[in-house]
Design a protein around this nucleic acid. Structure first.
Lengths: 190, 190
DNA sequence: GTCTATAAAACGATAGAC
DNA sequence: GTCTATCGTTTTATAGAC
């Protein structure tokens, strides 16, 4: 087993569960099955290890997003598929979790990967919506950047509300509401 | 100055900024200008003080929501006014912040006030949307619970994305996108 | 009610042996 | 590379004087 790898995956899990503030070096080491010496040999400290873990998580998410929003089918079909993929709702979003952490937000280098995921996802959605506009899939001309920001926000907010209520129900409702409203943009009222 | 009051408002601020995990008794005391003895005289410990602070914050938010969604004007007008009120975007939502905290979610009594705020806000929005449906303000018949969950989620998620990008821009875009889509539900395509 | 003293454990890291 | 020992600080209290 590669201790350095174990430390990174361990930190990834703890950042997801407890955030930067709630993650201690000791907890990382125990979960990784590594000692103090090992951790401080591979990383200069908690911040450096967290950076490696965040970058890894960001890369994993980016790969998933790239695979999902792949420009096949209509804009609505792509976005629907993206929104309906299986998610561990009550666990929340790895990146959204970090956006709430005061230390992540305070340290530019830790916030940057989080920023890039959200900026990149929005741009991807803008591209999809723009192609939908070009193909006249929508009944309206709209600011695609606004719709993209709204879609990402529904997803992030639905995780938040689900955790608050300790239930997947509000998440599913928010997705249904979003898919309904997006649907009305493509077909006229009855 | 009432030390007990100072301790509660101090804990409210720290919960907002740093969450339960990131808030230490010492920090609460310093911000409140109170000593150890004072805090432990008024509260049995960190959890008890946090509960008082969360309940206070929840009550304040509930009062604000009640004042804002007050059944005057059309459903769209009420929701628009609610969404457009001034917000300290980069500070985020007090309650949404707590929903991400592992210790808040783990302790039923700490999560409950957070749950109630979100459940209550959704119910309020459902009532507003139902009255809009009854008055035939919309072009569509839809599941008002789904739309309510979506609206609350956009708001919560927009805070998250704004913090991730350290910018109010995505928040404003999400609001614009939401108001546009809600608008299309009330008037036909051109 | 508030103060100061005390304390066991955890935090975040360093040092040096192996 | 990993281990153990050590370190100063912070955490989350408790105890008892005032």
């Amino acid at each position: 087993m590669d201790a350095k790898e174990n430390l990174i995956t361990s930190a990834q899990a703890l950042l997801w569960e407890r955030g930067y503030v709630g993650m201690s070096p000791k907890a990382i080491q125990q979960r990784a099955g590594a000692g103090q010496g090992s951790m401080y040999h591979h990383f200069s400290g908690k911040a450096a290890l967290a950076l490696a873990a965040i970058q890894r998580s960001a890369a994993e998410m980016q790969a998933q997003i790239d695979a999902e929003l792949n420009f096949q089918g209509t804009a609505l079909a792509q976005i629907t598929a993206f929104l309906q993929r299986e998610r561990d709702v009550l666990r929340g979003c790895r990146m959204g979790r970090l956006a709430q952490d005061p230390e992540i937000i305070a340290l530019e280098e830790l916030r940057q990967p989080v920023d890039e995921i959200f900026s990149g996802l929005q741009q991807r959605l803008i591209d999809v919506l723009d192609s939908g506009q070009a193909n006249h899939e929508f009944l309206y001309v709209f600011e695609t950047a606004d719709l993209a920001a709204m879609i990402v926000s529904v997803l992030q907010g639905a995780y938040v509300v689900a955790r608050a209520e300790n239930s997947e129900v509000p998440f599913k409702r928010a997705m249904s509401g979003l898919l309904f409203t997006l649907g009305t943009l493509t077909k006229p009222a009855i």
